[in-house]
Amino acid sequence: MEIFDFFVQNREMIYFIILAVFVGIEVIGGVPTVLHTPLMSGANAIHGVVIVGAIIVMLDTDPSNIFGLILGFLAVILGTLNVVGGFVVTDRMLEMFKKK
């Protein structure tokens, strides 16, 4: 059975995913509404980690594959926008809470 093989081969990964889902729920649970906007914005910055994938694409692309390099280049720009913009805008929001 192919499906069983898949489970056996990826057992650790599957456990990892299930636990990560619970960590996500646990971490957000019980946060006051007041903080939902900065939290959403902060989470937005964190999924910018997709930029790591874009860098891997750049590193793995054959240097003669110009089209691949261009796509990777664009991906790194977009990922950086997500990361830097996300963290900076969240910091600006939270700065206001801290003034008190």
Partner: peptide
């Protein structure tokens, strides 16, 4: 990062 944001979001 992805799963955390996926479930938290």
């Amino acid at each position: 990062g992805g799963i955390l944001v996926g479930s938290a979001g």
